[in-house]
Design a protein around this nucleic acid. Structure first.
Lengths: 227, 227, 227, 227
DNA sequence: CATGAATGAGTCTTCATTCAT
DNA sequence: CATGAATGAAGACTCATTCAT
């Protein structure tokens, strides 16, 4: 059984004493507090304007402890990015599984992003679309990977939708380009309406138009039903 | 004669002696060299990874001179951003003036951006879409302003095109939202295909699909001809 | 036992383990070494001619450590000033407590200042009467406070002496003015004879005359015995 | 005639053409403006907080011109100090010449210092008693010289007064010590009441007490009339 | 002589990271 | 494992001074 294997591999001992369990729980709690503190502070004051000690303070641990959980400041940011990237992909997958793979799926995904993600986690948006940009070669590399995966997911979804509708894209490149465009739209939308918020219009008010725009674009690149 | 002196004093610029002219020319040359050096280095190694001395060296001036032309490192970046923003708007305006305000204008703008700007000035793209992001409150403020103006330009163009075609957008908000989407598409497109270039596909190959996508989106948000 | 833990938590300082005590001792030792190094170097080469690294070197700590103990260079100077000011006041208080509050107290104070303080701590004199003058608004503010307190102390002493002798000053302002004069005399005396020492006369040789001068002045401003 | 000699030595030519005269006048005017600007700014913002360019601006000349008139920043300060020192000595001499060399001369000098100098030229006080302190070895050297001369002047005055009164000081050292004390009193008085002015009492209100104190001190160190 | 742009050595200060306890 | 004091390399910025025009 894989479960047994994993347990053995992790602990080496079978019974998992109560104190060991508690220690493990505390360890994870601490790691989470550090991550949350970093997220909050990076989003609020910016990555460079936030010091490790500040993060440690807010997480109620010592500076040294932060370095126990994360290799360095960059690693902290990268973990945050990966986590947010994962959550975004999950949101995407969840929405796709709920639908019938019609073009309306795209609407659902957009609504989920705008209503569930942006509105509820503006700090994550700030991290992902602002603070993690242009900080270092390593961070940029991770950014690329995360975006690539996101784009790939959307591309796959588009292909499956097209398949389901029995339609073909005007070119092989089209699905990916559309995916890149969609990600770009989300990106700027969030920056524009959410982060530069002194704009009178709320991000939600733009939802209908954005969805219309995207659907229009996708339709255009979908040729007619193959006979 | 004292009268002459006074007259010169009034003119302010006096007779513009040849040496004075040359001095002015040199001054502007130096400023340009600093700006160019900063652009190159920021794009190549990143804003934070570039030191003022490095910039001075490449510009063949002293550290002090850099500070004679620019208040500080941030000011250097801001000047770069504003310049690039201005060039982008100009490109936009030029293309619009060349066309008949049909929907094809959007195609021309896209082609100009992708072929003329991205291909020729990848460093400017790196500065504008990567290095200037999330560096400080002040920089972010300028970024916002530049983007807002760009969005506003595109929005105006869309309205004029709609007017010319005698069509109306589905909502008042639509033009601006479309503008934001278009900027977002350009942004991510440049990052994706130009900056993360180990991707086999060249940015130019995506042009057709992108233009199709955008046109499809715009069409969708343009109601039918008013009867 | 958890109870013990709680009790310790309440105490705040816990059992004060031996290692913790030593750590504290070392911390204070380090702070003192930095302060001493700064005092020596400021007095020897001047405040502006002394770099933070130099201080760190002499104190045998790193540059960063200096900033761990003191906010900045100014803070270092201010700490020095306050310390010296405190020592001067203490010297004053000690002498007054030893005497019978006759006019001879003034003699004792003068002797203590000249013999104990000036002779033993010329660097402190240099800091207090030379290096801390006119360095910045903040430093000047602290200087003022320290001097004000010194003047106030002397004024109080004068009032108590007058009370003890059953005599009154010629005016309400007199005690303070005298205090200011006395501080001024000490100030210049120290600068003149101690810091500009190529003068053949030693500061101690001036003691008798100074004391005579001061006593004469005080007497003059003390009206005759109230009948 | 010494005047002729000097003129010849200076110019080499006898007639002194009108334009040469004007040039000389302008030169001196400029020098004065620089000196005044420096005095104002040093007193207002402090020596180190004032830049050469600032001084040049206020004097309405170029940075380079300042260096034509003065070797460097230090030289500017030194000139200011010497000028003020000279004015103080002159004030002293003038007062002494006006009087009959009685002890009242000391009163007159004090009044002149407090009323004429302090009240009218607080910036000079700030320069002389604050800004020029502890700035560099060179400045300190000049400070010493100026003070020494001042002390010497007062000492001579005291001796002449004693002589006139047919009295002797208790010791040979006394006159100098008294002089040092008097200078110290003036020094601190000016700093205390003039520069740290949030004190409710004005410097003039302290005059009577100060004079009383000084006279009392001097009297004390003057033995009785030689029989 | 006046100008003011150019210089560049010098300094303070920050902060991510380490490590002895 | 947690702690937090110590480290020191790195970097932005200043400003007195010079000098070609």
């Amino acid at each position: 059984m894989p479960m047994d294997d994993e347990m053995n591999a992790e602990t080496g001992t079978a019974p998992e004493s109560r104190s060991a369990l508690r220690r493990k729980r505390e360890r994870e709690l601490r790691l989470r507090m550090v991550l949350n503190a970093a997220e909050t502070l990076f989003a609020r004051q910016g990555y460079h304007q936030t010091g490790m000690e500040e993060i440690a303070d807010m997480a109620e641990v010592s500076t040294g402890s932060v370095y126990f959980y994360f290799k360095n400041k960059e690693d902290l940011l990268i973990n945050l990015m990966k986590e947010i990237g994962y959550q975004l992909r999950e949101l995407l997958g969840t929405e796709l599984n709920k639908t019938d793979l019609s073009l309306d799926s795209l609407r659902n995904i957009a609504v989920a992003f705008l209503e569930d993600f942006c509105a509820r986690h503006p700090e994550k948006i700030a991290i992902f679309f602002r603070e993690s940009v242009g900080q270092s070669r390593e961070v940029e590399e991770v950014r690329k990977e995360v975006f690539l995966r996101l784009v790939s997911d959307i591309k796959e979804a588009l292909l499956r939708i097209a398949d389901r509708l029995d339609r073909r894209f005007v070119s092989d490149a089209a699905p990916e380009v559309i995916a890149v465009c969609i990600v770009g739209i989300y990106d700027r939308l969030a920056c524009h309406y959410l982060l530069w918020r002194d704009h009178p219009k709320n991000i939600m008010d733009a939802a209908d138009e954005v969805i219309g725009f995207m659907l229009g674009g996708v339709e255009k690149l979908l040729g007619n039903t193959e006979q």
